[in-house]
Simulated scan of single mutants.
Amino acid sequence: MMRTAEFEAERGRLQRLAYRMLGSVSDAQDVVQDAWLRWTRAGADVADPAAWLVKATTRLCLDRLRAAKAERAAYRGPWLPEPLIEPLVEDPVERAEDVSVAFLLALERLSPLERAVFLLREAFEEDYAAIGRALGRSEAAVRQLAARAKAHVREARPRYSVDRAEAERLAHAFLAAAASGDASAFSALLAQDAIMVSDGGGKRMAALRVLVGPADIAGLFLAVAERHGPMAVSSVRLARINGYPGVVLEMADGPQTFALEPGPDGRIAAIYVVRNPEKLGHVSAS
């Protein structure tokens, strides 16, 4: 019982670390389960259970990142992390700056070791010596990795955050504009330098490039509506998706998510659309 209690006390922290490392809810759950299995086989004389579990989880994540390198390089179209969905409440469990899509995409540009060091230091406040022990690196090497990683992701954290009322307003406005077929109304919601990234993974229809600017983004929505008619949506749910205001739709061919990154003047700075069914197994619109 004691070993179970020690693990459960750390489960949430390990899940958060693994998701940020891997960008996948399902893979993070698998890693934490693997860490549990290793924990059950560990000796009873582990002096610091929390440190042991962080080390095991980090190394399991590094193994997965290295194994997935070729698969990621061959990915069809833009890659987005699996959506992390929370209720649209005032105090979300996950801080938006630590799980935003922009931040996770910035982490993707780091090497696996840089990513591990950055997260353990910046998000989980581990000291350099402890990180070195977890990764089998010297403290000096860890400091160097941390400095390099911090420089790469410095600008990636969200600049704007919104409360529940504003998040609901933005999500409702997006839904209304998308359904209206009015290009002007849709464009008015978007910042001048807004982008849209759509991840279908080659499994469902999605844009194979990043769309830039209101005209480009609105044009795609209108073209899809003209070609396929109004979207057959069976249910709609507002949520926080990776800390952003978001919408979860249940379509005829499965769920999809829209994360709306807030920008200046109450407009949308970025739309992140996940349609790849392999990333939506944990998603339900109900």
Rank of each mutant, 00 (worst) to 15 (best):
A151T: 08
S284F: 05
R227G: 06
V197R: 09
R164T: 15
A47P: 02
A269N: 03
I195S: 10
V283L: 09
R72E: 03
R109S: 05
A67H: 05
F7E: 02
V99N: 04
G246H: 02
V101M: 03
T57S: 15
L189T: 08
P255A: 09
L53V: 00
A270P: 01
A44K: 12
A102W: 00
G254Q: 05
R20E: 08
A146D: 14
S235W: 01
I268Y: 09
A215T: 12
I268A: 08
Q29G: 11
R76Y: 03
V236Y: 05
L211G: 07
A223W: 04
E278L: 15
A96K: 10
D199C: 08
D127H: 13
D216H: 12
A269M: 03
S184C: 00
A239M: 13
A42E: 13
A56F: 00
T257W: 02
L105D: 03
R115D: 05
D27F: 00
L80D: 02
M231I: 08
L84E: 02
L60P: 02
A106N: 04
R95F: 04
I195D: 04
G201D: 07
I195V: 12
L238D: 11
R38S: 14
K203V: 14
A5N: 08
D182W: 06
A269D: 02
I241E: 07
L113I: 09
A51W: 02
L208H: 07
A44Q: 09
W52Y: 13
G43H: 11
L105A: 08
S100K: 04
E82K: 01
E155L: 12
A165Q: 15
I195G: 01
R133Y: 09
A129K: 10
E97I: 01
F174R: 09
L220W: 03
A74M: 09
G263R: 13
A73T: 08
V31T: 14
A5T: 11
F186W: 07
F124G: 00
A116W: 01
E10Q: 11
A51V: 09
G243Y: 01
M196E: 06
G243E: 00
S26H: 05
L60C: 12
P92E: 03
A47E: 12
P230T: 14
S284P: 00
A67S: 14
F7L: 15
A35E: 03
R154Y: 07
L65G: 03
E226S: 14
D216C: 11
R204N: 10
R66Q: 12
D34E: 15
R154M: 11
A178E: 05
A285R: 04
A167K: 13
R148P: 00
S161T: 15
A206W: 03
G213C: 10
V224M: 11
A191N: 12
L104D: 00
E122N: 14
P255G: 10
G202M: 10
A183V: 09
V248Y: 01
G181F: 04
E155W: 05
L84K: 00
G132R: 14
R13D: 09
R164Q: 15
A5R: 13
A206I: 11
R76L: 10
